[in-house]
């Protein structure tokens, strides 16, 4: 099977492997992982601790170099047994949004600036960046907290701001690492509904690592990793 580079598949992985160490200390974190995620699709990565979920997320996020395989993001071939782009940070800035387990907002910036910083890094002017940040906060219904520092936000509010930051540059690939782990079940549901809405409205692909069984029904497809191998996935449980 060859890596598909059509825009219909926002994320396309073929036979991605990643090992750490060599010889007796060698650990195969990922073994021949292939995965396709299409626009609007929300997928979950499950698996026990050490199964390779975070490694896979890091590989898709271009943070960790695989040992072999091929990878296309938004139709662009970015890895073919070696990185095909040198400016991986710019690639992340343009194509990928990250949502963390603990919002990871910069504590010295208020909600608006936490979003605006991403836009300014992408080259937008200060005024436009602020306007877009406020627009996103309104979209995520936290505009009333626009001037609040992260320390003054509730867990749910902070995670919404973090989602807004992830969406700031209109990336079509959103990677979420345990996005609801720090939230109670009600807020977790709200956040997942929001992510589904975003995936649908912005034709984005969302890949989330999660252990939270209460939100499994919010995913279109669920993949499980065991010992570095990805299963073929299953549709949303009813």
């Amino acid at each position: 099977m060859s890596a598909v580079s059509t825009p219909e598949r926002l994320v396309s992985l073929r036979n991605i492997s990643k090992h750490f160490g060599e010889g007796t200390t060698r650990v195969d974190a990922l073994r021949d992982v292939s995965l396709d995620v299409t626009p609007g699709q929300v997928v979950a990565l499950l698996g026990p601790s050490g199964s390779g979920k975070t490694t896979l997320l890091n590989v898709i996020g271009c943070i960790l170099e695989p040992s072999k395989g091929r990878m296309c993001l938004e139709g662009e071939k970015v890895y073919d047994n070696r990185w095909l782009r040198s400016d991986l940070r710019r690639l992340r800035l343009d194509k990928i949004g990250f949502i963390f387990q603990f919002h990871n907002l910069l504590p010295f910036l208020d909600a608006t600036d936490n979003i605006a910083i991403v836009l300014e890094l992408a080259g937008l002017g200060s005024k436009e960046a602020n306007a877009r940040a406020v627009e996103l906060l309104e979209y995520l219904e936290v505009a009333n907290r626009r001037a609040a520092l992260p320390a003054k936000l509730s867990g749910g509010e902070a995670q919404r701001v973090a989602i807004a930051r992830a969406l700031a540059n209109r990336p079509r690939i959103i990677l979420a690492d345990e996005p609801t782990a720090a939230l109670d079940s009600a807020r977790a549901g709200i956040v997942m509904d929001l992510l589904r809405k975003l995936a649908s409205e912005q034709e984005a692909a969302i890949i989330a690592v999660t252990h939270d069984e209460k939100i499994f029904d919010r995913f279109d497809r669920i993949y499980e990793l065991r010992d570095g191998r990805l299963d073929s996935g299953s549709d949303r449980p009813n």
């Binding site: 992340r92 800035l93 343009d94 910069l106 991403v118 890094l121």
Partner: peptide, 16 residues
């Protein structure tokens, strides 16, 4: 360090 890691992750260049 964690904030710097976050900045790098979201695409901040080294000069920032």
């Amino acid at each position: 360090l964690k904030q710097i890691a976050t900045l790098k992750l979201i695409g901040a260049p080294d000069r920032t």
